[in-house]
């Protein structure tokens, strides 16, 4: 265990330094993108007919009259301590950190649910497709995967609402119950959004796992394992699937960013009070502190997922140390 930890910590710690740097650069990009983009928070908040005096007062109140470097420092330095300022438009005066603390668990729950659904589906479908390559289970899994990749998530969302919510009445089509209130209620209300996010991901995961399994099954150690008399199931589990997990985990880790992107649209469709929906509202209102904080949280989520992927791969592949 100690050896495994050391193997994990070396490259991961080195990577962690890079992650901090990327995070800071990302924060700068987020900050600059908002200010370079069109729109003005003051005009958006006060309306096009606002007097120059009221606009100037608004800018002075929220520090928007300061030079950019000053604004950036005034945002980032407290942000490093968890203070993201207050919302200036969507929920005027309320601390951004409180808004995020309310919304983040929803997105994290639905995202994790979708990731579990996609990974589990892909593990089964990919393994079945590779094990019966060229036979009907393979054709079925491959066809579904092509379909899944071709369907955009918002379209899948309406398909699911039409069939499972309105048609069969199995799941609610709108709203959210937190897991702290009712776990079954939470799972039920998050099922359709999670399915909509998971469907395209499951499809691409399945294709990747199938390809990785087929490639691994051609390797010499598989042939030697068979020559040593190990049964087919043993060889598949310990030689083929075990090693195909390495490229699979890498791809799943990279896909987390699409998962986060997917939540933005899906949360609107299903009326989930999540971070994605909050960020869209904040962007329309030019609520700079709120958009910045949401984007930063998403960025940290992606970086954390990459770091976790790296660590998992180092555990799975002893050659990476």
């Amino acid at each position: 265990m100690t050896a495994a930890f050391l193997r994990l910590s070396g490259p991961t710690l080195r990577h962690a330094g890079g992650v901090v740097l990327v995070g800071l650069l990302g924060a700068l990009c987020i900050f600059a993108a908002l200010r370079l983009g069109p729109g003005d928070p003051a005009l958006t908040a006060l309306g096009e007919g606002a007097t120059p005096a009221s606009v100037a007062a608004y800018r002075a109140r929220w520090g928007l009259d300061q030079p950019w470097p000053v604004q950036f420092a005034a945002w980032l330095l407290p942000a490093l301590h968890g203070d993201f300022g207050t919302s200036i438009a969507v929920a005027s005066g309320i601390p951004v950190s409180r808004l995020i603390a309310e919304r983040l668990p929803v997105t994290a729950f639905v995202g994790a649910y979708a990731l579990v659904l996609a990974t589990a589906t892909a593990l089964v479908a990919g393994a079945v497709a590779a094990r019966w390559r060229g036979r009907w289970p393979d054709s079925l899994a491959t066809t579904l995967a092509v379909l899944g990749v071709a369907m955009p998530d918002f379209w899948v969302a309406y398909l699911l609402i039409g069939s499972l919510a309105f048609g069969l009445g199995l799941f609610p089509s709108f709203g959210y119950v937190p897991p702290s209130v009712s776990l079954t209620g939470a799972l039920s209300s998050a099922t359709l959004p999670a399915l909509a996010i998971a469907a395209p991901m499951a499809a691409s995961f399945t294709r990747i796992l199938r390809a990785a399994l087929l490639e691994e099954s051609l390797s010499e150690h598989v042939r030697v394992a068979r020559a040593l008399g190990h049964p087919g199931g043993f060889v598949f589990l310990h030689h083929v699937l075990r090693n195909a997990l390495i490229p699979f985990v890498t791809v799943v880790g990279l896909q987390v960013r699409y998962l986060l992107g997917g939540t933005v649209v899906i949360e609107r469709i299903f009326g989930l009070p999540g971070l994605g929906a909050l960020m869209v509202d904040a962007a329309f209102a030019r609520d700079y502190p709120l958009v910045q904080a949401c984007a930063l949280v998403f960025l940290i989520g992606v970086l954390a997922a990459n770091l976790a992927t790296d660590g998992l791969c180092a555990l799975l592949d002893p050659r990476r140390s």
């Binding site: 010499e220 030697v224 040593l228 310990h238 075990r242 090693n243 799975l316 592949d317």
Partner: peptide, 15 residues
């Protein structure tokens, strides 16, 4: 039984 040309490839690198 079989002995192969490439002993490096004959072993599962993850085990």
């Amino acid at each position: 039984g079989m002995i192969v040309q490439d002993p490096v490839g004959a072993f599962n690198p993850a085990k």
